Computed example of a mutant assay.
Amino acid sequence: MKLLLLYCRAGFEAECAAEISNRATEVGIAGYPVFTKDQGYVEYHLFGDALELMSQIKFRSLIFIRQWVACLPVCSELPTQDRISPLSALVQDLPQTAELIAETPDTTEGRELQGFVTKFASAFSQSLRKNGLMLSRKQASLWRLHLFALSGREMFLGVSPVKNSSRHAMGIQRLKFPSHAPSRSTLKLEEAWHWFIPKSEFDEALGGGLTAVDLGAAPGGWTWQLVQKGMFVTAVDNGPMNESLMETGQVTHLREDAFRFEPVRPVNWMVCDVVEKPIQVTELMLDWATHGWAEQMVFNLKLPMKQRYKETLQCLDRLKDGLNEHSIDFKLSARHLYHDREEITCYLDLRKA
């Protein structure tokens, strides 16, 4: 297959395209992106094999790409009276799968299609299994089958590797907003934990009784998540904090500048969602890391309107270089989460291996 379909947040197609072009070049596989702004996906046309490219790159190392699918050419003008037959014929050219995921672009038009696509995919998967073109649900497969619909008559068909892709439909982790949280920003930190920390390590990394600092805390969306995990939090912000959070007895509110605050003693967690230039936040994180003030950090970098991918790489490289200069062991990851907007979320683990 010569086509790699990449899902992204609408408006971030250029960043998605720049990232895959950069990463493909690194592993010596040439290609070129095709996209329209705000369409929510990028077509990356390869001169090599899409499956080979996917085997050379760790999906979890990608930042702006929510999901990737090795695809056949788009199926256009599908007959409305029988879409299943022509699509079934194409499935025979794909690796065998045991699961079909129905998807659309994450756009207004795409969301309007989801009801139809879900129903169609159910009938399609039943037909594939009946005709021996898909394994039973109990059988293991290395691949997932994806049906990505642009309309009722135009669809992509392809596969993603089960162990090197997102397990969520459309690459989106769906979370329910907790009604008692002070702000919707709380979902950013919850999603970050789900993405960056393996479920098997949740108890160790996020257990009760830990200490945390929330820089730029008000009104307390991220502090709320820390409190729910049983942590004791120092919330640093000149603005007011949610009253119910303060009543828990787990939060100390300091009306100070996040960029000038220094903890009395090291903490287990530092989180930061301040609105400031990304390079300044990067320097602040580097300061915390080199002083040994926190074991783990989650922080957001608010990106500029232009050259967002370039700015991302510059900030991450600055952080890596600074940590290496101080001979600090670290694990650094970054992701444009579903609940992020003009920003990326980073996770820095400074615990000794």
Rank of each mutant, 00 (worst) to 15 (best):
Q67F: 03
N164K: 11
P33N: 08
A17P: 06
D49K: 12
V74T: 11
S61T: 14
S76N: 14
L94D: 02
F299R: 06
G208K: 14
T248C: 10
S244G: 04
A102D: 03
R144C: 01
I63S: 05
T234W: 01
R174Q: 12
M285Q: 13
K229P: 00
E247N: 13
Q92G: 09
L332C: 03
H336R: 09
V271I: 12
I328W: 02
Y7M: 03
E243V: 12
Q81V: 11
F116C: 02
M231R: 11
E342I: 02
V227C: 12
Q96V: 15
A70Q: 05
K138N: 05
L337T: 05
Y338L: 01
M305H: 02
L142D: 15
I84A: 13
V91A: 12
R351M: 08
D38W: 08
V267Y: 04
S141W: 00
T252A: 10
A70L: 04
Y32G: 08
D214F: 03
A70T: 10
W269Y: 06
H326T: 01
E52H: 08
L189F: 06
E52D: 15
R184G: 07
R23G: 01
R137W: 02
H168I: 00
Y44I: 08
A50W: 00
P95G: 09
G152P: 00
M54L: 06
L254I: 14
L150H: 06
V74L: 15
D106L: 07
D340F: 03
I197V: 15
I63D: 04
E43S: 13
E343I: 05
T252W: 03
F116W: 15
W222T: 08
V264K: 15
E262N: 09
A258F: 04
F120C: 08
A205F: 11
D321C: 00
W269G: 07
S185D: 10
D340K: 09
P198G: 11
A192V: 07
P79S: 12
G171C: 07
I328N: 03
G221Q: 08
L316Q: 13
T234R: 13
T290D: 00
P219R: 11
F64A: 06
L145I: 05
K320D: 10
Q280A: 11
R111S: 06
S76E: 15
N268H: 15
T223F: 04
G292E: 06
Q67A: 11
N131I: 02
L90V: 01
M155N: 03
A169M: 00
F124C: 09
D257N: 15
E154W: 00
F64C: 05
F59I: 10
